[in-house]
Design a binder for these strands. Structure first.
Lengths: 231, 231
DNA sequence: TACTGTGAAGCTATTCACAGCG
DNA sequence: CGCTGTGAATAGCTTCACAGTA
C-alpha cells in the first residue's frame, strides 16, 4: 500500500514533538526484527501512555490494524515521510568552539535526514581546520556559502553576543529554520522557526524540583555547606 | 524587604520552565544598570507576551508595583531563590566524549547555581585527564564518588547503549535529578526527575515545519536533488 | 478476542480585558 | 494616569472509556 502523499491537515505541535521519539523506538524494534507492535508496547518504548500514542498516530491517518497493532516498518516509514526525513536537509553550523565541534561530529555521523554542508567560524585559528570531513570556512562568507550550498537549517553555537547578528544574516538569505544553542532569545520575522536548546535552563528546572524534594525530605540534603564558585 | 521564605504552593511546570528565561533577561537588564522594568519590557526581552509574564510572576507572589513595574534586582533575587540557585548544586557528568567535554567546559565556567564536582568516563585514555580543572575518574568508582561528593544532579552524555545502566547506578545511590543527552528514553522510579536534551529530535521538529513551508511555497525548495548519505 | 481510533470529559495553559492600586 | 494582578473566556492537550472492527 502506498501512503497518501497529500500535505495533510495540521498536526498538533505536541504531537510533532513526540514523533521523533516514536520513530526512534520503531527503529530499535525494527533492528531487533520485530514486525508488529501494539500501542501499549510502543508507548512503553517511547515513554508515554498508550492513549496518547494512539491519539498522536491518529493525526497521521489510520496506520494500525485493529486487534493486531501497527506494522513497524510501515509506521516508521510514514513518520519518516511526515517529518520530512526522506530527504537530507542541508545544515550549516556556526561557531566551532567545544559545543559546535561536538555538534558537527555528532551530525556528521549519526543522523539520517540531515547533511552538514557548512561549518563557519570567526576565529582564524579554526578556519581551515577539518572537522567531521568538512573544512571550516570564514563566517565572512556566510551569505555566499548558504546560497551556494542550499542551506535550509542553521545551527547557532556561537557566544550569545554574536548569535542575533549571525541569525539575522541567515534569515536575510532565506533560511527559515534555526536551532539556537546560544543562551539568548533570538528575534526573527514571521515564518521563521527557532528552537532553543539550553543546558543551563534545563539544569535550573531540575534545581527547582530538586529544591522542592530537599525541602519535603530534609534527610537527603547535600552533605555540607557548599563552596562558593568564582563568578 | 525580606522575601517570604516559605515552601510556597505549587507553580505550574510551564511557568517553571520560563523562569530561567526571565532570570537571564533580568540579569542582562541589571548589567545595563536598569533598576525597574515593566511587564511589557521584560516580556519582550524574554520573548513572551506580557500577560503570560504577569501570570507567571503572580505565582511567585506580588513582587511588582502597580503603575511602576518590577524592581530588577529584587525580582532577580526572588526567581533565583525560587529556582533553588542560592546554593551550588553538585553536578556529575558521565561520558567525556566531544559532547561531555563541551558540557564540562561550559558548566565549569559559565553557570551560577551549579558546581561540577565529578567527571566520569569508562575509557582509560580519558581517565586521569584534567578537564575544566577536574580530573576525570573511572566510572567504576561512580557510587563512591557520588556519595563522597554529595552529587545531586547527574548529566548523562554517554552513548545510548550505556545510558540506562549508568542512570540506574546514580538513582541507586540517591540521585533524583537527571539530565539526559543520550538519545534514548530512561526509565526511573517515582520521585526521580529526568529531562532530555536531544539534538536530532530538535532538528526533526524543524524539518517537519521546513517541509510544510517548502510545500506551501515551492519556489524556495533546496537547490537540487540532494546527495545520499551513508547509513 | 484483542486491539485501534475517537467522542466526550477533564485538565492545563494562554489570552483577554479590566478592576484596583500606587 | 499607568501599571500590576486576576476573574473569566478560550484554546489546546491529555485521559478515559468504549464503540467498532479485523
Amino acid at each position: 500500500v502506498i501512503a497518501d502523499p497529500t500535505p495533510r491537515q495540521d498536526i498538533p505541535d505536541a504531537t510533532v514533538a513526540r514523533l521523533p521519539q516514536y520513530l526512534r523506538a520503531l527503529r530499535d524494534l525494527s533492528d531487533r526484527g520485530v514486525a508488529s507492535v501494539s500501542s501499549e508496547e510502543l508507548a512503553a518504548a517511547a515513554g508515554v501512555r498508550s492513549a496518547k500514542l494512539r491519539r498522536d498516530l491518529s493525526h497521521l491517518g489510520s496506520y494500525g490494524v485493529r486487534g493486531v497493532g501497527y506494522g513497524v516498518e510501515m509506521l516508521a516509514q510514514e513518520i519518516t515521510r511526515e517529518l520530512g526525513l526522506s530527504q537530507n536537509w542541508p545544515v550549516a553550523i556556526v561557531g566551532l568552539g567545544n559545543l559546535g565541534h561536538a555538534l558537527a561530529a555528532y551530525l556528521g555521523l549519526a543522523t539520517r535526514g540531515f547533511q552538514v554542508v557548512a561549518l563557519l567560524d570567526r576565529d582564524a585559528e579554526v578556519i581551515g581546520q577539518q572537522i567531521a570531513g568538512i573544512v571550516v570556512a570564514s563566517v565572512d562568507d556566510l551569505e555566499r556559502i548558504v546560497t551556494e550550498r542550499g542551506v535550509a537549517i542553521c545551527v547557532i553555537a556561537t557566544p550569545a553576543a554574536s548569535a542575533q547578528k549571525v541569525c539575522d544574516r541567515f534569515v536575510a538569505v532565506g533560511v527559515r529554520s534555526v536551532l539556537n544553542f546560544a543562551p539568548c532569545v533570538l528575534s526573527v520575522p514571521e515564518g521563521v522557526d527557532v528552537r532553543k536548546v539550553d543546558l543551563s535552563t534545563e539544569l535550573q528546572i531540575l534545581a527547582f524540583h530538586e529544591q522542592r524534594k530537599a525541602l519535603a525530605d530534609p534527610e537527603s540534603l547535600p552533605l555540607e555547606p557548599l563552596l562558593e564558585v568564582a563568578p
